[in-house]
Amino acid sequence: MSKNKHPVIIVRKRKKHGHGHHGGSWKIAYADFMTAMMAFFLVMWLITSTTPQQRQSIAEYFQVPLKVALSQGNQSSLSESVIPGGGSDIVQKEGEVNRSTPRDNADIKRLKRARDRLTNMIQTDPRLNNFQSNLRMQLTENGLLIQIIDSQDRPMFKLGSKELEGYLKGIFEALVPVINQLPNRISLTGHTDSIPYVHGDTGYSNWELSADRANASRRALIAAGLGSNKFLRVIGTADSMVLDNEAPDSPINRRISILVLSQNKEKSLISDDSLIENITGHGNIEQIKNELKITPQTNEGVAALEN
């Protein structure tokens, strides 16, 4: 009996080797090198083109970016100092160094005493005692905020008018002696609800009403004995800053706000106008006109516009 012979198959596997510089591994190394060089030059550019405060903010962002985002600030400590502690102590690493001056501390204590005195007066003074629900006081970083709020059954002004009710004048008379004793100036703001006038914003609107009520309150405060030099600003905000967002037409949104300004806030408000002051105080007005491309209007130009 014959046996079937199968052919023998031999499989030889050859290993492929890289061909020197023709391989692809060098490309990865080169890419890493270029990335590192780009990062290096970026760091060098940031060092030469930014201030120390900006570099501190950038460093803190990469250290704790979530903390900066949650605090809605420009750095995690919310301090203008480049030192980690926020003050003159270079070894301070945690927390904020108390950089408030004795003058700032005295200002805060003075406002706190005024708040406490007014709180006691609300309980004892008949001019204020009957209006406890209409008076709100809060000590903020901007100063002592005193708000006189309308209610449905006891409005502070005649309906749709700038005419004060008699009891609002009584409230002002009670507040004036306390405010007069403070060296701080005040910011007076008028607020309205969202109920519009018939002609909307094209005619007399809540903007005019809030400003008129603020100025009427200013005159009433001066008549009650408040020094006219105590006012830093008098503004009307209409219904742009309501207390009750869910009911913008609520009487609670109609109010007069008296902010006894902290010294820091007063300086901040004054510095906001520094650009205008610099322009108006500029000696060479013709140069400013050229820069702004303002040309004086002649009589012929006026006639042409009228025609």
Rank of each mutant, 00 (worst) to 15 (best):
R185F: 09
K3V: 11
S217M: 06
R136L: 14
V64I: 02
I195Y: 14
G85C: 11
Q72H: 14
N105K: 15
L66Y: 03
Q56F: 14
M44C: 01
P84G: 07
G85P: 10
T35F: 02
D272G: 05
K230Q: 14
N229E: 03
G227P: 08
G95R: 05
N206M: 00
K16H: 08
H22Q: 14
T124K: 15
K162H: 07
G73H: 06
D89L: 13
F40R: 06
L292D: 09
V178T: 09
S25H: 14
D249E: 08
L118F: 06
V43Y: 03
G160Q: 05
L269A: 08
L261P: 14
Q147A: 05
I258S: 01
I186L: 06
M1T: 04
L128Q: 03
N134V: 05
T35Y: 05
L46I: 00
S2F: 04
Q132N: 12
S161K: 10
S274W: 09
G18N: 13
P183D: 07
S71P: 04
Q263S: 03
I10K: 13
I186K: 00
L261D: 14
S194W: 08
G160W: 02
T237Y: 03
S81V: 09
N120R: 12
F40A: 06
S133R: 06
E246V: 08
T124V: 15
S49R: 10
I108V: 05
A223T: 01
I258F: 01
S187G: 14
W207P: 02
T119G: 10
A304I: 11
E286H: 05
S217G: 07
R218H: 00
M38N: 13
S57Q: 15
V198H: 15
I90C: 13
I9G: 02
H17R: 13
D150N: 15
R12K: 12
E300L: 09
A174P: 09
Q132F: 00
K109F: 00
D125R: 06
N130I: 00
I179H: 00
R233W: 05
A216E: 04
I28M: 11
L78P: 03
R154M: 15
S161R: 12
I235K: 05
K230G: 12
L66V: 10
I179P: 02
N184A: 05
L118S: 00
T50I: 04
T192K: 10
K15C: 09
E277I: 08
T48H: 04
K3H: 14
Q181R: 09
G200I: 02
K289G: 14
G225L: 01
M137E: 09
Q138Y: 04
I108S: 10
M156T: 11
T48A: 10
I222M: 05
S257G: 02
A106Y: 01
V178C: 09
N74A: 11
P126S: 14
L128N: 04
G18Q: 10
